[in-house]
């Protein structure tokens, strides 16, 4: 994490000096040349703002982010330049920081909005360098919401949604997690083609030592803190029973010195995707979260979100 902060710090310095963006209340000084294609200023003006990423296609692997667009200071005709700081899910579960600038602006067909090339700011081998990494399309703001599409690393486009923060507001540290938009929501009932594939008793296979178990009075606060990250609260042990038609699941998880019981309803599947609604006070009460994961051949693994708590679980059907 310290290394990430260092990289981020260096990246920001780079932005502010060699290749990047010096921000002021009057506008940005990026050093980027006047774009060859002129976009009418009235089309750009609605986008000059600070934004919080509120929703993103789950395939993009972006947890959260913040973005800002300002007119290049002294540019004539005026052109917008953007900068963003995204927090990405790393391959091993850690959060990585990525910096992007958005330049040059182009007008989307039919006055739909603005498009920008996404330029990735080098942070490890090429400080100060930017390289094309995709495209961002922003549609006309609707109130405080701006929707759009993002292409990154050759993937996408993924839907994105930003909330306008205004220049007075911003996040001094990691912004809150954006809602992950599923591209294709499973709709087939159950967790497989035949009940015999998924009905039965499961055992938790990723249980480990519960760090809160020996933490005494500090146990609950550790449990709460662990639930805030992307990795999820540590689970000491647990089980799951799937039964009925339509199928429901009862999940018991040991964490924070307590056994938590959840009821999963609306089990649905498509391919290897497995989803369900999560309840803490029985199926008759409103859901407090969601289970999303994958499954096949008697195994189900994924993320169980219940209110503020996030659990990473892996279950195996007992023979």
């Amino acid at each position: 994490m310290r290394r990430l902060r260092l990289i981020l710090g260096l990246g920001v310095v780079v932005l502010a000096t060699s290749a990047g963006v010096a921000w002021a209340t009057t506008g940005a000084t990026t050093g980027y040349p006047q774009p060859k294609v002129v976009v009418p200023t009235p089309l750009q003006t609605p986008f000059e703002n600070r934004y919080l990423l509120t929703a993103v296609g789950s395939g993009a692997g972006i947890r959260s982010g913040e973005m800002k667009f300002e007119f290049e200071e002294g540019s004539s005709p005026q052109f917008l330049v953007g900068i963003s700081q995204f927090y990405l899910y790393g391959p091993t579960g850690e959060i990585e920081t990525a910096l992007f600038t958005f330049y040059p602006p182009t007008a989307l067909p039919n006055g739909k909005g603005l498009g920008f090339d996404v330029l990735k700011v080098g942070a490890s081998t090429s400080y100060g360098q930017v390289s094309p990494d995709g495209e961002l399309r922003l549609f006309k703001p609707q109130g405080e919401t701006v929707k759009g599409e993002l292409e990154l690393h050759g993937g996408g486009p993924w839907p994105v949604e930003f909330k306008v923060l205004g220049n007075a507001r911003g996040y001094s540290a990691s912004p809150p997690a954006a809602k992950q938009i599923k591209e294709a929501e499973p709709t087939a009932p159950g967790w497989g083609a035949k009940p015999s594939e998924y009905v039965g008793e499961y055992e938790l296979t990723n249980g480990g030592e519960d760090p809160t178990a020996k933490a005494a009075t500090l146990g609950p606060v550790i449990s709460v803190a662990e639930g805030l990250g992307a990795q999820g609260t540590a689970v000491g042990g647990g089980s799951m029973t799937v039964k009925g038609n339509p199928a429901t699941a009862t999940v018991k998880l040991e964490s924070g010195g307590t056994t938590h019981t959840f009821t999963l309803t609306d089990l649905a599947w498509q391919g290897d995707q497995r989803v369900a609604q999560v309840h803490t006070e029985g199926a008759g009460r409103p859901p407090v979260g969601r289970f999303e994961g994958t499954g096949a051949q008697g195994e189900v693994k994924g993320t169980l979100i219940a209110g503020p708590s996030v659990y990473k679980v892996e279950f195996k059907l007992r023979p």
């Binding site: 996040y171 760090p211 809160t212 178990a213 933490a215 005494a216 500090l218 146990g219 550790i222």
Partner: peptide, 20 residues
């Protein structure tokens, strides 16, 4: 500071105490 990732990381300092 709404840096909830840091909150999580810092909690490791409480785990290490093994207060129980």
């Amino acid at each position: 500071s709404e840096n909830f990732d840091a909150v999580r990381e810092l909690s490791a300092g409480l785990v290490r105490i093994h207060l129980g």
